[in-house]
């Protein structure tokens, strides 16, 4: 009896150990970035065949998706109203994707440039101040010079938001006292300078 119990316990422990399998943890299915032995390139995520259009993604609005009109000229203006939300979104996206090279004010002294990347032009030169919005959209979408394209990293609507924010940066670097609403002018001077210092320290 006692021997039976002993062997029973051993069998139970062994059964428990054998039961520790990982089948449910590692199911034979594809999750994002799981490799595949089926496809030659080892990817389970497949590239989209050329010419595929997902539902609702016809992208027929060429001005919105390319920055050019039907004749291939750069469009100016924006495809949607530039609200405060758009500007804030543009600021956020600009700070994520553009500041590494163009820096927070657009002069082109970002950290990557300081590490040796080719210096991009400042946004505040006349050529770029006068460049149409569609031109900037095209540069973000297709790259320019040493700058790679950002079409995969920044969605079209965000590109337009970034352009709006870049326009705001350009304005800020060339603003005069006349651009400040009369009601706010009194706040400039000592307090305005303190604000600027605060922002730079951040």
């Amino acid at each position: 009896m006692r021997t039976n119990l002993k062997w029973g316990a051993v069998a139970l422990i062994l059964a428990g150990a054998v039961g520790c399998r990982q089948d449910m943890h590692d199911q034979p299915k594809y999750i994002p970035l799981r490799p595949s032995s089926f496809f030659d390139d080892g990817r389970s995520a497949r590239p989209i065949p050329a010419g595929t259009v997902a539902r609702g993604h016809l992208e027929a609005d060429t001005a919105f998706y390319t920055g050019k009109d039907a004749n291939g000229n750069y469009v100016d203006g924006f495809p949607f109203a530039v609200t405060k939300e758009v500007l804030l979104r543009g600021q956020e996206r600009y700070n994520i994707f553009c500041t590494p090279c163009h820096d927070r004010t657009g002069t082109g002294n970002g950290i990557v440039v300081r590490r040796g990347f080719r210096h991009p032009p400042s946004y505040h030169i006349d050529r770029l101040r006068q460049a149409p919005n569609g031109y900037i959209f095209d540069v973000i979408t297709n790259g320019f010079g040493a700058m790679q394209d950002y079409s995969a990293q920044v969605a079209p609507a965000d590109r337009w938001a970034i352009i709006a924010y870049e326009r705001a940066l350009q304005l800020s670097e060339n603003a005069t006292l006349a651009d400040v609403p009369a009601a706010q002018r009194a706040q400039l001077g000592a307090q305005g300078n303190a604000l600027v210092i605060q922002q730079e320290a951040r």
Binding site: F97, V112, G116, Q148, Q153
Partner: peptide, 27 residues
């Protein structure tokens, strides 16, 4: 900058090597 899908997708993507090359084409 690299994990671009983290706000829109269930999965925070590992960037393609293209993203590395944005800077490392020169650096």
């Amino acid at each position: 900058y690299c994990h671009t899908t983290v706000e829109d997708s269930s999965f925070a993507n590992i960037p393609p090597v293209k993203t590395c090359m944005n800077c490392h084409s020169q650096i």
